[in-house]
Simulated scan of single mutants.
Amino acid sequence: MTTLFDPLQAGDLALANRIVMAPLTRNRSPNAVPGDLSVTYYGQRATAGLIVTEATAISHQGQGYADVPGLYGADQLAGWKRVTDAVHRAGGKIVVQLWHVGRISHVSLQPGGGKPVAPSAIRANSKTFLVRPDGSGEFAETSEPRALDAAEIPGIVDDFRRAAKAAIEEAGFDGVEIHGANGYLVDQFLRSGTNHRTDDYGGSIENRTRFLFEVVDAVAGAVGAGRTGIRLSPVTPANDTSDANPQPLFNHVVEGLGRRSLAYIHIVEGATGGARDFSQGDRPFDYAELKATYHKAGGRGAWLVNNGYDKELAEKAVADGKADLVAFGKLFIANPDLVSRLKRNAELNAPDKATFYGGDARGYTDYPTAA
Rank of each mutant, 00 (worst) to 15 (best):
R18D: 12
E312R: 14
N31V: 01
T128Q: 07
G363K: 06
A218L: 08
F250D: 11
F160Y: 15
K311F: 12
T128S: 10
G155N: 13
Y357T: 03
R344A: 14
A171G: 03
L98G: 09
I333D: 04
G155C: 00
L338D: 07
W303N: 12
S242F: 14
D282E: 14
P246R: 04
R146T: 09
L257C: 14
V83D: 11
K353G: 11
A48K: 03
K165Q: 14
H196R: 11
A350D: 13
G273T: 03
Y184N: 06
I205Y: 01
V68I: 14
A350K: 15
R260I: 08
H100R: 09
L15R: 06
S233Y: 00
A118T: 09
T128R: 06
T365F: 01
E347V: 13
R276Q: 11
Y367V: 11
G172V: 05
L190E: 09
R26P: 01
G256V: 13
I265L: 15
R123K: 15
Y201Q: 08
V186W: 12
V216A: 04
D360Y: 05
D360M: 02
I267C: 04
G64Q: 05
Y264N: 07
S105L: 05
T198E: 10
D243A: 00
G49L: 05
L338K: 02
G203W: 00
I156A: 08
L342E: 07
E141D: 15
I153L: 12
N349V: 07
K343L: 12
R26Q: 01
F211N: 09
G64I: 04
V131W: 00
S29W: 00
L338T: 07
A16D: 11
A334N: 08
G43W: 02
I51L: 13
A66I: 01
D240P: 02
A22V: 00
K93T: 13
G224D: 12
R191W: 01
P336H: 05
G258R: 13
Q63N: 11
A323E: 05
L304H: 14
R45T: 04
Y309I: 00
A275V: 09
G135H: 04
G183Q: 09
L262C: 10
K316Q: 15
T228F: 13
S120R: 07
I178G: 10
V219H: 10
L212I: 08
